[in-house]
Design a protein around this nucleic acid. Structure first.
Length: 268
DNA sequence: AGATCGGCCTGGACGC
DNA sequence: TGCGTCCAGGCCGATC
């Protein structure tokens, strides 16, 4: 499940290979979630940016190719030495002036679309996206204010993308464990908010350094896995002893998402 | 307007 | 072995 560190790792591998390249042809399965992608034909990709879990490629005509990997999306180049051969799960293919790039997505939760630059009216999560957690726009003070304005459980609020961009189920559980905050909490005071702010930045930065977490499906452009899975303390670790207090970690469903936490040292 | 919930989608794990 | 059921979850749209 690509979250910010995984998408950033993809961006870092993809950017040098697509920036400045011209799209000579596009093949894409006809689906609403791939709307207007074929109109990128003939355009040159100027750069590759990331906002939250979205990849955004400005084109040379004032539009942007916006990409979201969903749960199982990945990009792979043909003809490299990584052994990639297109399979039945390729949903789109970009023919570039110097190579062929496949978009593969088993579960089809991903999305590719072309919009006027900055016009995200049709992509509500991107339109309403919160600050980049590793930028100076993300401050503990503003994070606490934003948290105070919502009544949802803090875990659900973190997944909403409006308080902060790019946090998904893995890093929400990791950050809440690190900050000792109960995922059900609907009120988080300034000190605990500051601890969570710090924990979010730490878990994301550490995972980027390890090129992301491969738990099931995530793979990089070169087909390799991220190295952060071995360092997960909470996500997917239910029943294992909490490294702080030894209590077996509990699993509940919160906001429709599996949530693993320590009921002792993340007490409400 | 914000909170909540079901649907999308498919492979893999599990039970019988 | 094979079949059925459940689970994973980011986002979106409908409903409360």
């Amino acid at each position: 499940m690509p979250e910010l560190p995984e998408v950033e790792s993809v961006r870092r591998q993809l950017a040098p290979r697509v920036a400045g390249r011209t799209i000579t042809a596009v093949e894409v399965v006809p689906q609403e979630r791939f709307r207007a992608v074929e109109t990128a034909t003939g355009r040159t990709i100027e750069a590759l940016h990331r906002r939250g879990k979205y990849l955004i490629a400005p084109l040379d005509d004032g539009r942007e190719l916006v990409m979201h990997l969903g749960m199982t999306g990945s990009f792979r180049f043909r003809g490299g030495d990584d052994g990639w051969v297109p399979d039945a799960y390729v949903r789109a293919t970009f023919h570039l002036d110097d190579g062929v790039l496949d978009y593969r997505d088993v579960r089809r939760f991903g999305r590719l679309t072309v919009v006027e630059a900055g016009d995200y009216a049709g992509i509500p999560t991107l339109r309403d996206l919160g600050p980049e957690p590793l930028s100076n726009d993300f401050t503990a003070r503003a994070f606490h204010r934003a948290l105070s304005r919502t009544t949802a459980p803090v875990k659900v609020a973190l997944l909403g993308q409006r308080l902060v961009a790019g946090v998904g189920n893995i890093y929400a559980d990791e950050a809440l464990w690190r900050a000792r905050i109960n995922p059900h909490s609907r009120r988080v005071g300034p000190e605990r908010a500051a601890a969570l702010w710090q924990a979010i930045r730490e878990v994301l930065a550490e995972s980027i350094d390890r090129e992301g977490t491969t738990f099931r499906d995530y793979q990089m452009v070169n087909g390799e896995s991220g190295r952060n899975a071995d360092f997960l303390i909470a996500y997917g670790q239910e029943g294992r002893p909490c490294p702080r207090c030894g209590e077996p970690l509990s699993k509940v469903v919160l906001g429709g998402r599996g949530t693993t936490y320590c009921r002792i040292c993340q007490r409400r």
